[in-house]
């Protein structure tokens, strides 16, 4: 009886953990990586990139450009190509992206209706 209870608690803790932290090694994508070390490196670089590109932004209107930024960041560090899916899979181990709320602030630019105006610089004739 007591033992069962402990197990139940343990399970719950693990569940809570998996949402926020890198828990265990990933199931599928690990096979595509040559070394264990690369894996750690990869995660570190990704977390570093998240400082620039907050994951919450992946839920908003700027999603694709944030994703592009992350792809570029990893590509630069590892000198190989990263696909959008690959980045999302990596992120998925740290965050439950669906649970993240989009940043309200970032949408505010779209909240005010404004007529289009062509900046003056476009009217300047080539000299």
């Amino acid at each position: 009886m007591a033992k069962e209870e402990r197990e139940a608690v343990g399970e719950e803790e693990q569940e809570g953990l998996s949402v926020h932290s890198p828990a265990q090694a990933p199931p599928s994508s690990a096979s595509s990586l040559p070394k264990e070390q690369t894996q750690v490196e990869l995660e570190l670089r990704l977390l570093e990139a998240l400082e620039v590109y907050p994951p919450a932004k992946l839920q908003g209107i700027h999603r694709h450009f944030v994703l592009y930024g992350l792809m570029e960041h990893l590509r630069r560090n590892f000198e190989r190509h990263f696909s959008a899916d690959e980045v999302l899979q990596l992120l998925d181990r740290f965050f439950n992206l669906e649970m993240l709320k989009p940043d309200d602030e970032e949408a505010e630019i779209f909240n005010q209706e404004d007529d289009f105006t062509l900046p003056q610089s476009f009217f300047v004739k080539e000299e």
Binding site: K57, H62, G69, H73
Partner: peptide
Amino acid sequence: LLAYVNMEEEALNKL
């Protein structure tokens, strides 16, 4: 619009 993404300079240049 892109100003809101606050992209790193290298990525922005590429973009």
